[in-house]
Design a binder for these strands. Structure first.
Length: 554
RNA sequence: GCGCCCGUAGCUCAGCUGGACAGAGCAUCGGACUUCUAAUCCGAGGGUCACAGGUUCGAAUCCUGUCGGGCGUGCCA
């Protein structure tokens, strides 16, 4: 049971007690809000309950607070002190007894500390990245890879049953253009003069694919028809890109549970069937030779095309079928991570889901703002037209996985991210990744030393020897970890993790300068060693969630 | 035009369902290594929370409007 729950239960009991004693004429009990005060001088936890109740019971807030405090009965001795402060806040100061219990809990649970069952085994599907299989991943994909993977890590720790999925858009027009691009480069390399398609993919990698075909099989494909050539090249190039995507994701430390092919939807007629179902439900009509979805029935500004006049279904139609399939697979919630350039698509997708009879809130879409790549403060230009861009592979190569992931996870997804390559590469104090990793390496070093000096934690540990401010602050920071995990899960936003990692590292570094772990006093050394071990376990958990390595030495 | 996101210290950004004198990192300035990792620590300066109204006992946070930036507004994906 987390300390908030304990406190909130105590307050609730106090309210009932005060009511029975005639001190507070309340009807119901409002939700009890507890927070960490900004100021350390205001205690470890505070509640505004008296301020909330004051107007209802027509009493001055401080008098309400007084009545509550008088009725509060801390039987377990978790509280050191309770104060009424300011306009009527009640401030709680935790006793070290509770802090020591946190330490023994961490010792017992190790890296499982902070894990919970708030997710209640709800089945969650997180779909992210889903880069088109027509080229290498770009920087923006990297952000979604990091965010999606870390969110999945945290939600799993919070008791959700989470699966990661990559939707492969391996169908339709873009694949044809992709194939044509390869075919044209192939012909070009063999000395033919053919015009490059207007919308073609101009990246150098297209030429590489063509070169490889030539190297392996020469010019034999010039003998067959253009159509056959493109069909063969499409499959080859697709497979190659898909392998490449998997390789890049591996470099990011991301492993998907499922790779879902758009083609499969079409091959199994699921797109057609979904449109038919929508039609049966009365949300489809024909007009101007096309088939339309009545999005306007769900408050959308206009209706959307499902099947074009040329008979080809739209991407949207396939995506509806895809989402129907997701729910059909039994997921309670479906989370999609999309770039801001797709946000106009959210409402219509939700409309479609509603039209199919699913509650639209079962689909959660995280809209992430885009990434700006900088190098030493200067924007790096990228152009889809010329195919000139910095790929995620290059970034990983240059910056490394740890810094890449950490930087991608540092900001709220609501904020556009400035990713400065030079900064991320810098192995200096400007770089928060190393700051956190250094703390980990430092703890590891201390623990190695302590073990060598014969300190061991197998016997009784007298936690009450930990009594200075820097020690207690460190324990309090460790105690926050479950709150962070819960918050990240609830808000579906991983960026508090990096902030916490930095805070925990900072509190540890401070403890390190104030307290010597290994010393003459065996009992004290053991207690501090145990505190170090606890910090190491939690820091390791944080880094694991982030997908950043925890080096034993630096 | 309309929709979504954003506007907080010199820079990059936190600020959870409104709460007590607005936070962090970097940068700047000044200190700390005979002791378990100085990739560290301590201290200082630095803000009309874009602007104007409103709701509230209380607003960076909620509502309305204005200005500024990003993205979107396809029978593209």
């Amino acid at each position: 049971m987390m300390i908030q729950d304990i406190l909130s239960k105590l307050i609730m009991e106090a309210l009932n007690q005060a009511k029975l004693g005639g001190k507070l004429p309340i009807d119901g009990i409002p939700e009890i809000m507890l927070e960490h005060p900004r100021e350390k001088a205001h205690g470890d936890w505070a509640t505004n309950i008296a301020l909330v109740l004051a107007s209802k019971v027509k009493m001055p807030p401080r008098a309400v607070a007084q009545a509550i405090v008088e009725s509060l009965n801390d039987t377990q001795g978790y509280l050191e002190k309770i104060e009424i402060a300011g306009p009527g806040f009640i401030n709680f100061y935790l006793s070290s007894k509770w802090l020591y219990e946190v330490l023994s809990l961490i010792k017992e649970q190790g890296q499982k500390f902070g894990h919970s069952k708030v997710g209640a085994d709800q089945k969650i599907l997180i779909e992210f990245v889903s880069a088109n299989p027509v080229g290498p991943m770009h920087i923006g994909h990297g952000r979604w890879a990091a965010v999606g993977d870390t969110l999945a890590n945290v939600m799993s720790a919070s008791g959700y049953d989470v699966k990661r999925e990559f939707y492969v858009n391996d169908y339709g027009n873009q694949m044809d253009i992709f194939a044509e691009s390869v075919a044209v480069r192939y012909a070009e390399l063999l000395g033919q003069d053919v015009p490059f398609p207007e919308e073609g993919y101009r990246g150098e990698y297209i030429k590489d694919i063509a070169r490889e075909i030539i190297a392996k099989e020469g010019d034999k494909y010039m003998a067959i028809s253009k159509e056959d050539r493109q069909e063969i090249f499409k499959e080859r190039a697709y497979m190659q890109i898909l392998e490449h995507l998997k390789h890049t994701l591996q470099g990011m430390g991301v492993a998907f549970d499922f790779w879902f092919s758009e083609r499969a939807l079409h091959e199994l007629s699921l797109v057609k069937k979904t449109i038919e179902e929508l039609r049966k439900r009365g949300y489809v009509y024909d007009s101007e030779g096309a088939v339309w979805f009545k999005a306007s029935a769900f408050g959308e500004e206009k209706d959307r095309v499902l099947v074009r006049a040329n008979g080809e279904p739209t991407y949207f139609a396939a995506d509806i079928a895809y989402h129907k399939n997701k729910f059909g697979r039994g997921f309670d919630r479906v989370i999609n991570i999309w770039g801001a350039d797709h946000h106009g698509y959210v409402a219509r997708m939700k409309a479609a889901i509603e039209a199919l009879g699913y509650p639209p809130e079962k689909l959660e879409v995280i809209i992430g703002q885009l990434v700006n790549l900088l190098r030493g403060g200067e924007p790096v230009r990228m152009s889809k037209r010329t195919g000139e861009m910095v790929t995620l592979d290059e970034l990983l190569e240059e910056v490394g996985r740890d810094a890449t992931r950490f930087f991608f996870l540092m900001r709220s997804t609501d904020s556009p991210l400035d990713f400065d390559i030079e900064l991320a590469k810098e192995q200096s104090n400007e770089n928060p990744v190393y700051y956190v990793q250094y703390a980990y390496a430092r703890i590891s070093s201390i623990i190695r030393y302590a073990k060598a000096e014969g300190i061991d934690l197998s016997g009784e540990i007298n936690y009450n020897r930990l009594e200075t401010e820097s020690e207690l602050d460190l324990i309090k920071k460790l105690a926050e970890w479950p709150e962070i995990l819960e918050r990240v899960s609830r808000q579906r936003a991983p960026h508090p993790l990096t902030a916490y990692a930095q805070e925990l590292a900072a509190v540890f570094h401070y403890f390190y300068t104030k307290c010597r772990v290994v010393g003459e006093d065996k009992e004290l050394s053991t207690a501090r060693m145990s505190l170090s071990e606890a910090t190491r376990a939690v820091l390791k958990s944080v880094l694991n969630m982030l997908g950043v390595s925890a080096p034993e030495r630096m």
